[in-house]
Lab assay of single mutants.
Amino acid sequence: AREMGVIAAMRDGFGFIKCVDRDVRMFFHFSEILDGNQLHIADEVEFTVVPDMLSAQRNHAIRIKKLPKGTV
C-alpha cells in the first residue's frame, strides 16, 4: 500500500519524510525519487514502505513520487 507524507529533511544523497499515517520520520535515498523530480523540504510525496535490510526495527521509503500541493 502506498503512503503519503511531507519531506521533512534533506541531506547529501538522502532525506526523511514525515509520514501522515505513522508517527515516524521515514528515511529515503535520492535514488528512490521517481520521474527525476527535485524534491525540497515541505514537498508532498507518496511512497512505498519496505523493511530496512540492515535493521529489522527500521523501515525506509522507496518509489517516491512528488504530489501536487494540497494532496496531503
Score class of each variant (00 low, 15 high):
residue 1 A to W: 09
residue 1 A to Y: 15
residue 3 E to C: 10
residue 3 E to S: 10
residue 3 E to L: 06
residue 4 M to F: 14
residue 4 M to V: 12
residue 4 M to Q: 14
residue 5 G to S: 07
residue 7 I to K: 00
residue 7 I to C: 00
residue 8 A to Q: 13
residue 8 A to S: 12
residue 8 A to K: 04
residue 8 A to Y: 04
residue 10 M to L: 15
residue 11 R to P: 01
residue 11 R to L: 15
residue 11 R to T: 08
residue 11 R to V: 06
residue 12 D to Q: 13
residue 12 D to N: 08
residue 12 D to S: 08
residue 13 G to A: 06
residue 13 G to Y: 04
residue 13 G to H: 08
residue 13 G to R: 04
residue 13 G to K: 15
residue 13 G to M: 10
residue 14 F to T: 07
residue 14 F to M: 09
residue 14 F to Y: 09
residue 14 F to K: 07
residue 15 G to P: 00
residue 15 G to F: 02
residue 15 G to A: 03
residue 15 G to N: 00
residue 15 G to I: 01
residue 15 G to H: 03
residue 15 G to M: 01
residue 16 F to W: 14
residue 16 F to Q: 05
residue 16 F to R: 02
residue 17 I to Y: 00
residue 18 K to N: 11
residue 18 K to Y: 12
residue 18 K to Q: 14
residue 18 K to S: 09
residue 18 K to T: 12
residue 19 C to P: 12
residue 20 V to F: 11
residue 20 V to I: 08
residue 21 D to C: 04
residue 21 D to N: 10
residue 21 D to H: 11
residue 22 R to A: 06
residue 22 R to S: 10
residue 22 R to D: 07
residue 23 D to T: 03
residue 24 V to M: 09
residue 24 V to G: 12
residue 24 V to S: 13
residue 24 V to H: 03
residue 24 V to F: 05
residue 25 R to Q: 15
residue 25 R to V: 10
residue 25 R to I: 12
residue 25 R to N: 15
residue 25 R to D: 15
residue 26 M to S: 03
residue 26 M to L: 14
residue 26 M to E: 03
residue 27 F to H: 11
residue 28 F to W: 04
residue 28 F to Y: 02
residue 28 F to C: 01
residue 29 H to F: 08
residue 29 H to N: 09
residue 30 F to N: 08
residue 30 F to L: 07
residue 30 F to I: 08
residue 31 S to F: 06
residue 31 S to Y: 05
residue 32 E to M: 05
residue 32 E to P: 00
residue 32 E to K: 14
residue 32 E to S: 11
residue 32 E to V: 00
residue 33 I to A: 05
residue 33 I to D: 03
residue 34 L to I: 13
residue 34 L to F: 04
residue 34 L to P: 05
residue 34 L to Y: 07
residue 34 L to M: 13
residue 35 D to P: 10
residue 35 D to W: 02
residue 35 D to M: 05
residue 35 D to T: 06
residue 35 D to F: 08
residue 36 G to R: 08
residue 36 G to A: 08
residue 36 G to S: 07
residue 36 G to K: 09
residue 36 G to W: 01
residue 37 N to Y: 13
residue 37 N to L: 11
residue 37 N to P: 09
residue 37 N to M: 10
residue 38 Q to Y: 05
residue 38 Q to R: 10
residue 39 L to M: 05
residue 39 L to Q: 00
residue 39 L to T: 03
residue 40 H to N: 13
residue 40 H to K: 11
residue 40 H to D: 10
residue 40 H to R: 12
residue 40 H to C: 13
residue 40 H to S: 14
residue 41 I to D: 08
residue 41 I to A: 07
residue 41 I to Q: 07
residue 42 A to Y: 08
residue 42 A to W: 10
residue 42 A to L: 10
residue 42 A to G: 14
residue 42 A to T: 11
residue 42 A to Q: 09
residue 43 D to E: 00
residue 43 D to M: 01
residue 44 E to V: 06
residue 44 E to N: 05
residue 44 E to F: 02
residue 45 V to P: 00
residue 45 V to C: 01
residue 45 V to T: 04
residue 45 V to E: 03
residue 45 V to A: 01
residue 46 E to Y: 00
residue 46 E to T: 04
residue 46 E to A: 04
residue 46 E to Q: 05
residue 47 F to N: 02
residue 47 F to H: 02
residue 47 F to E: 03
residue 47 F to K: 01
residue 48 T to D: 15
residue 48 T to I: 05
residue 48 T to G: 00
residue 49 V to N: 10
residue 49 V to Y: 05
residue 49 V to E: 05
residue 49 V to H: 05
residue 49 V to S: 06
residue 50 V to Q: 11
residue 50 V to M: 11
residue 50 V to C: 11
residue 50 V to I: 10
residue 51 P to G: 14
residue 51 P to S: 15
residue 52 D to L: 07
residue 52 D to E: 09
residue 52 D to K: 09
residue 53 M to A: 15
residue 53 M to P: 15
residue 54 L to P: 14
residue 54 L to D: 14
residue 54 L to H: 14
residue 54 L to S: 15
residue 55 S to G: 10
residue 55 S to T: 13
residue 56 A to R: 13
residue 56 A to T: 12
residue 56 A to D: 11
residue 57 Q to T: 11
residue 57 Q to V: 07
residue 57 Q to E: 14
residue 58 R to N: 14
residue 58 R to E: 09
residue 58 R to W: 10
residue 58 R to F: 09
residue 58 R to D: 13
residue 59 N to I: 06
residue 59 N to L: 15
residue 59 N to R: 09
residue 59 N to A: 14
residue 60 H to I: 13
residue 60 H to Y: 11
residue 60 H to R: 15
residue 60 H to S: 08
residue 60 H to T: 13
residue 61 A to V: 05
residue 62 I to S: 07
residue 62 I to P: 00
residue 62 I to C: 09
residue 63 R to E: 09
residue 63 R to G: 13
residue 63 R to P: 01
residue 63 R to S: 10
residue 63 R to W: 08
residue 64 I to F: 02
residue 64 I to G: 00
residue 64 I to S: 00
residue 65 K to W: 01
residue 65 K to F: 11
residue 65 K to I: 06
residue 66 K to F: 03
residue 66 K to R: 11
residue 66 K to Y: 00
residue 66 K to G: 04
residue 67 L to Q: 01
residue 67 L to P: 01
residue 67 L to H: 04
residue 67 L to S: 05
residue 68 P to C: 05
residue 68 P to S: 06
residue 68 P to N: 07
residue 68 P to Q: 09
residue 69 K to I: 09
residue 69 K to P: 15
residue 69 K to W: 07
residue 69 K to F: 10
residue 70 G to P: 01
residue 70 G to N: 03
residue 71 T to N: 05
residue 71 T to V: 07
residue 71 T to D: 07
residue 71 T to S: 15
residue 71 T to Q: 07
residue 72 V to K: 05
residue 72 V to Y: 05
residue 72 V to S: 06
residue 72 V to C: 09
